[in-house]
Amino acid sequence: MAKQRAEPFLWLLFSAGGVVAALLVPALLLLFGVLFPLGWITPPDHDHLRAVAAFPLTRLVLFGLCVLALFHWAHRFRYTLYEGLQLKHLHRVIAVLCYGGAIAGSAAAAYLLTAGL
């Protein structure tokens, strides 16, 4: 039996990603996808929202959400390809593509949250 060295850490990222996504994403979707468009809550004006998003703590939380949610996706998608599509013989390629995608997405999030604001 091969002792797993990376898997516990990848699973922790997956697990943390699931938790933060389940906690934060529904709230964001409810606000920006339902309540603001329907006018049930008066949305903050653009400058106000921009100031909130520019606050370092907000950026840090958004960055954490992006990174963890991406690693959650990578882990789940990797196993979907392994077992759902029976591609386990391509495990190296799949792992590189999935986690590489998550790293690339995290870099993009970091860029957007710093230079983009």
């Binding site: 039996m1 091969a2 002792k3 797993q4 898997e7 516990p8 196993y79």
Partner: peptide, 14 residues
């Protein structure tokens, strides 16, 4: 832990 924290143990479960 030696037996269970492996590919064939808990990490095989999805």
């Amino acid at each position: 832990l030696e037996v269970l924290s492996t590919d064939e143990g808990i990490w095989g479960c999805t």
